[in-house]
Each structure stands twice: as C-alpha cells, then as structure tokens.
Amino acid sequence: MKTFYWLVKREFWEHRGGFLWTPVIVGGIFLLLNLMGIAVGEAFGAHHGMTMSGNNMHLFNQAMTDGDTDKIGFGLDMMMFSTSIIISIVLGFVLFFYCLGALYDDRKDRSLLFWKSLPISDTATVLSKVFSAAVLAPVIAVICGVLTGLLMLLMYVITLSFHGVSAWRLLTLAHPFQVIADLVGSIPLYVLWALPTLGWLLLCSAWARSKPFLWAVALPVGVGVVIGWFNLLGSISVNNLWYWKNVCGRVLLSIFPGGWLGQNHMMQLSDGGVAHALDFLHVAHAYQVLGTPSIWIEAAVGAAMIAGAIWLRRWRDDN
C-alpha cells in the first residue's frame, strides 16, 4: 500500500503540469474571460442588449430578462457547471496523452531501466498509472471545477445584485450543493466509463516501439474505414455506425468525461423543459447508464487490455 502511494505520488510529480496546473489555469482563464465579459456587459450590454459569445453572458441576460425563478436557478447552476465542463474537456486531452506516454516515454528515454532496478512489480506500476488517470486527475479536476464554479456563481450573483436582485434570494434559487454532489458523484462513474480508453491507450503505450499515438488512433479508425469500404462494396454487412460508436468511440473518446450522457438523456432534456433541465446531469440520473450491460462489458474489455499492458510491461524487451 505504501509502495502504491509513492508510485502515485511519483506520477503526480512527473505530471504536475497536466494534473494540477492545467485545470487551475484553465479554470482561472475561464473566470477571467467571464469577468471581462461582465465588465463589457455592464458598460454596453445593458444599453444595447449585446451578448457575448464564449462566456456566460447569455445566461446572465436570460436571468435578467426572465422573471421565472426556475430559469434563474437553472442559469445559475449552469454557470457553476460551465467551469467544470471546460475543465473536463481539457482533462480529456491531458489524460489521452498521459496514457499514451505512460508506458512509452520511459522506454524511449531508457529511464525504464532505473524504475526496473527497484523492487516494484509491473502490476503495481501499471495500476498506479491507471489510478492516476482514472481517479487522481479527475479528483483534482473536480476540486478545481467546484472552486472555480463557486467563484463563477458568486461573480454573477454579485453582478446581479447590483441590478436590484437580492444576492441571497439568488443563492437560494441556485443549487450549489446539488451541483457539487453531481460532480463528485460522477467520479466513480467516470472510472468505469473511461476503462476501455484507458486500457486501449495503455496497451498501445506498452506495445508500440515508436509512435504510440499513430497506432492508437490509426488502428481503430483504419478498421472502421475498411468496414465502411466493405459495406459500400456490399460484400458484408456489418453495422458501421455501431462500430464507430461502440468500438472506435469507446476506445478513443471515453477518456472525456460525460460521454455517458447519451441520446436518451438529451431527449429527456428537450421533453422535460427547464424544470428538469439539470436532471440529466444529476448523479442519480447519470447512474442509470449502469443498468445497461454494455458499459460493464466494455469496462471488462478495458480491464483485460490493462492486464495486457501489464504483461507487455513485464516482457517487452527493447534493445
């Protein structure tokens, strides 16, 4: 256990930039952009009805013009979510490249020989990398998302209070604790959801002699193109869309959080109207995806690929 703790710490040392500073900086820049947007809005928007894109000003305007308390609450919650959404997208990119390099970079610079000179099993090494990607980085991202989200909320509430709306009343309309619970609660779901991509990327990272990115992307995309080509020829009929969505998408894109919010959720969103607009993000709702067998099967395949990566890590013999 102590070894595992230090292995994870080692990953954090090496990837402090990606795991910690990236979400902090992204959250900070997003806050700053919104602050600038508010300033511009205060100067001109109130007079000309101008809206800024790329920030939350439209939600702000909506809340200002509409007396509907549900809508105001929804707008405030979305503001709080917005930082997490941006941070999650960036986190996806960080983790994608982290996994591709995790079992490759130290082979390339030969520092593998140093790590292998220590009494650490390859299983512990690989699992510490899985843990760092699936748990450590998302937890840091959620903490950053919650903090910047609260700041975002306060920023808009204070701005609105200058326009005669009571700040306390606004805060009672928003649901910050619900939003925090949704974000924290999504971490276990993310672990399960991301497993196929984590497994595939780590497998490529452990296997490739060079250019792991090319192998990881070109192989599943290439297979998809070939299937599509055979479909056009009419010689076989494999459901091409199924492949792109359930194989290619799952091994490459599941590293991005929120992918489990599928079409069904979106449909419910458009049906339910604003009163239930946030339900699709609610944690209890999101966990409905666990009722489908596919997520379990895909997670098992992901775990199997991680086992493959461990085996390759043990026996890959580069010269």
Partner: peptide, 13 residues
C-alpha cells in the same frame, strides 16, 4: 541493484 548504462535517471526527477 543495477546501474544500466549511464544517465538513465528520469530527466524530470
């Protein structure tokens, strides 16, 4: 213990 080749310590550490 082994020291395999020179300079194989990870560069970031």
């Amino acid at each position: 213990c082994f020291i395999a080749d020179v300079a194989v310590l990870p560069r970031w550490i």
